[in-house]
Design a protein around this nucleic acid. Structure first.
Length: 497
RNA sequence: GCCGCCGUAGCUCAGCUGGUAGAGCAGCGGGCUUUUAACCCGAAGCGCGCAGGUUCGAGUCCUGCCGGCGGCACCA
């Protein structure tokens, strides 16, 4: 990382820079320990959120004071004024409130103790609400306790922390310094909460299936491999929850979902993190049209939860276009008329599109065309319907369009955010699909599906017609918070050592 | 993997066609009982991501490496 930082040095004379700043704070902590019996307590009960106080006293006129006692706790973010009166800004999770410290109220010793605190220290305060003459709602400090000492200086109170590398590697500093970042992760929590609320409300039950799997599956991706010592065998980190969740449908749970991390051993980009959060939900006796409605409702609910104020319109129904139709519309290439490797390749060469096609099958090329030339342009929420069967080993054949499956992918903001099918429930057809994947694998496709006999046996037990959906939570959060990188919405994104 | 840009005090940044590194904030000492980027005075702090090289002299030029960002390739 840039800005190599020395190991915290022992306090002492002759030190400069950061070690000196740390030494200064350390000795202050020592002095506090000796002079203030109440410093560093184990708890500080009965505090209230700052935002509530700001709201409750909005009616106060400038200069108006009360004797209403309030208790807050938070981090010291700024300090102004001195002499016999000082103003401190205290920040908690909900906001920032000004503290008015007065020599005549606190007495010399306490006033000195309070005003000699460092920015970044944690503080608990008892005080009375007022609006200052300059119009800011504040608390007059009547009593306080130092709750923790910050031995390291916080980021700049004015400019915050803007170095992206430091923001990601030391997310705590980002959260301390940047209100926007704090708000974003609160929004992320609201999105997740809305997703659960929607599914819970619709009768889905949340389940947990293995992260460590003897066989991975359910998506086209390369897995991470790990090792179990006692079992003496390698295991995979899951790339999807699909197959286990379908076994829950076979088991009769009827509506299930799992919200958690998947792991894919592939490139890192502004839209890809090697571990990412996905919710998958499956529903018996439903098809992909039913699931489209569910996604639309779920996303609308999440948008409302974060008071989405962007430009996209998430109201139902979203725009729907056919896979072949949208490809033809955006690239001019009629893939449906060229369902053949050589023919399609020739068509692309004729069209002059910049694309590498060697070694790719026609459906891989089609998929590539979609992600490269169509996906970035899909700003408004759009469902792309009915994919070639070769791209979708777990989706059920289309009821009226030969060679296609009943599948849609949802796009918004130029990104794929969800994927769904009428689930393939016929064990014999599924077995054939696995065999087709095996031959792809033997041709060198590292993302082909491994043959999963246990899954087939589950289908052979009888699986009801079902619809299933996977939604990328990180991307949904990006969309709803206007973030242009997945790293902004993941607390600790993958970084090099 | 390739290409481009970037990496200067704790934080945010400035450093021209190479001449020996600065500012604001934070911190330290002092002043100020209603400030809001508080203000005023004073003293201090970095040798410029790392390692080499060119040069009388290198944050400034060259090479390699590390890390970040963006694009391409690859992908989900």
């Amino acid at each position: 990382m840039s800005g190599s930082e020395a190991t915290p040095a022992e306090p002492g004379p002759g030190r400069h820079g950061l070690p000196e700043l740390i030494a200064e704070r350390r000795s202050k902590a020592e002095r506090l320990r000796e002079s203030d019996a109440g410093a560093f307590p184990y708890s500080f009960a009965a505090t209230e959120p700052v935002a509530g106080i700001l709201e409750a006293y909005d009616h106060l006129a400038a200069g108006e004071e009360t004797e209403d006692a309030h208790r807050v706790a938070g981090r010291l973010a700024a300090r102004r004024g001195a002499g016999g009166a000082a103003f401190l800004d205290l920040v908690d999770r909900t906001g920032k409130i000004q503290l008015h410290a007065r020599l005549d109220v606190l007495g010399e010793e306490a006033f000195e103790r309070l005003t000699s605190l460092d920015l970044g220290d944690l503080l608990g305060v008892d005080g009375a609400a007022l609006r200052s003459r300059r119009g800011e709602i504040s608390l007059r400090v009547d009593g306080f306790q130092v709750l923790a000492k910050a031995l390291r200086p916080p980021p700049d109170k004015r400019h915050g922390l803007s170095d992206v590398e430091t923001r990601y590697r030391r997310r705590e500093l980002d959260l301390i310094a940047n209100e926007d970042s704090r708000a974003l992760f609160l929004d992320r929590a609201k999105v997740i909460s809305a997703v659960r609320a929607y599914l819970d409300g619709e009768g889905f039950i949340e389940v947990e299936t293995p992260v460590l799997q003897p066989l991975y599956g359910g998506a086209l991706a390369r897995p991470f491999t790990t090792h179990h010592n006692a079992l003496g065998r390698d295991l995979y980190l899951r790339i999807a929850t699909e197959l286990y969740l379908k076994r829950m449908i076979v088991g009769g749970l009827e509506r299930v979902y799992e919200l958690g991390k998947d792991f894919r051993n592939e490139g890192i980009s502004s839209k890809h993190n090697p571990e990412f959060t996905m919710v998958e939900f499956y529903e018996a006796y439903a098809d992909y049209e039913d699931e489209a409605k569910r996604l639309e409702e779920m996303v609308a609910l999440a948008a409302r939860a974060v008071a989405y104020k962007g430009e996209l319109d998430f109201s139902r129904p979203w725009r729907r276009v056919g896979f072949f139709e949208v490809l033809k519309e955006k690239t001019g290439i009629d893939v449906a008329a060229h369902r053949d490797d050589e023919q399609l390749r020739a068509a692309i060469v004729d069209s002059g599109l910049e694309m590498q096609t060697t070694g790719l099958t026609w459906f891989h090329i089609a998929d590539e065309l979609l992600s490269k030339f169509v996906e970035p342009g899909l700003r408004e929420p759009t469902l792309v319907l009915d994919y070639p069967v070769e791209l979708s080993p777990f989706a059920r054949e289309h009821r009226s369009k030969p060679g296609l499956v009943e599948r849609w992918e949802a796009f918004a903001g130029g990104m794929e955010i969800a994927n769904a099918f009428s689930e393939l429930v016929d064990p014999d057809v599924q077995r054939e699909r696995f065999r087709a994947q095996q031959s792809l694998e033997s041709l060198g496709d590292t993302e082909a599906q491994p043959f999963d006999e246990m899954f087939l046996q589950a289908l052979e037990q009888g699986m009801p017609p079902s619809g299933g959906v996977g939604v990328g939570i990180d991307r949904l959060v990006m969309l709803l918070t206007g973030s242009d990188s997945i790293r902004e919405v993941v607390l600790f994104p993958a970084m090099r050592d």
